[in-house]
């Protein structure tokens, strides 16, 4: 039975399609699927980190971690940190972007300088902040005592809730420029006619912001919140260097717990279990968030 030229051509196109998509699939498997499966696989073992030798324990790592108070405290800390720093980043970022969108003097210079905290290395940024917070030589305490606001230095990093508040503030300072860049780019594309129409309708600056600017920013804010929430949720270096998770475990987030299990306690299997749970939590949040946003858009 002879095949029609049409069918042959279609089959060739299908093969070509597979061939063209193959590199993407290979790269996707190598950088996403393999590490993910490897993490899940490792989480089923009790492994000594330096040798990666150990024994299969099934889901007992998951049972253990869910029974540990430390996990729930760290999860709560992670959520407080993420929600706190993300909210501040968004508020500061939108505020600063609106300011830089105006015709102010040295606007180009200001737009460049605003990126400085985002570009500076986290280690350097944390060292600078630790010095600012220092009880003996820090400028913040010096100014507070000098102004008579306090009699004794404030313990910014060693007591609660100061440590969490300081951490959230430093995180917001470090990462809000990302919001500024994205929001500023979107602000420049909002047609002036929308504002003119709003003005004609008698809308003041606040009403124009809520009725014109904010709806126009919604799409970009969805992306920003999604990305920054993921990044903040798994933030490690800033928190580790600033408070080390202390006092006690009051600022210990899940990534710090993963690090502690993997490298302080040399329990790679348990660390992998924490990492898998972290990923699952993030996934749940992201799915809920995206669905809600879509529902809002549809309505």
């Amino acid at each position: 039975m002879s095949r029609s030229p049409q069918a042959l051509l279609e089959r060739r196109y299908a093969r070509l399609g597979l061939l063209l998509i193959a590199p993407t699939i290979v790269v996707f498997c190598a950088v996403i699927v393999y590490p993910l499966l490897a993490a899940i696989y490792l989480s089923l073992f009790q492994l000594y980190t330096p040798t990666l030798e150990g024994s299969f324990v099934g889901i007992s790592n998951y049972r253990d971690l869910l029974a540990r108070g430390e996990f729930w405290i760290s999860l709560r800390n992670t959520l407080v940190w993420t929600a706190g720093t993300l909210s501040l980043q968004i508020v500061l970022g939108i505020g600063m972007a609106l300011m830089l969108h105006q015709a102010v003097w040295f606007r180009s210079l200001a737009r460049s300088l605003i990126l400085f905290p985002y570009f500076v290395s986290t280690v350097v940024a944390v060292l600078v902040w630790r010095w600012l917070f220092n009880d003996l030589y820090g400028i913040l305490n010096h100014m507070l005592i000098g102004s008579g606001a306090v009699d004794m230095p404030v313990d910014y990093l060693g007591s609660m809730p100061n440590a969490m508040i300081s951490m959230i503030l430093v995180g917001a300072w470090k990462y809000f420029p990302f919001v500024v860049i994205a929001v500023l780019a979107r602000l420049q594309t909002i047609p002036d006619t929308l504002y003119e129409a709003a003005r004609i309708d008698g809308a003041g600056p606040v009403a124009r912001f809520f009725d014109v600017t904010l709806p126009q920013l919604r799409d970009v804010l969805v992306v920003i919140i999604l990305l920054r929430a993921i990044w903040d949720f798994k933030e490690f270096d800033l928190i580790f260097l600033l408070t080390g998770g202390g006092p006690v475990i009051s600022t210990q987030t899940l990534p710090l717990l993963v690090y502690k299990e993997a490298f302080a306690l040399n329990q790679m299997g348990m660390a992998a279990a924490y990492a898998v749970v972290m990923m699952a939590i993030m996934l749940v949040f992201m799915v809920v968030y995206i669905r809600r946003t879509r529902e809002k858009d549809a309505s």
Binding site: P153, L157, G158, P247
Partner: peptide, 8 residues
């Protein structure tokens, strides 16, 4: 000890 010793 200094107040910041909680993080020393």
């Amino acid at each position: 000890s200094p107040i910041g010793a909680t993080n020393y």
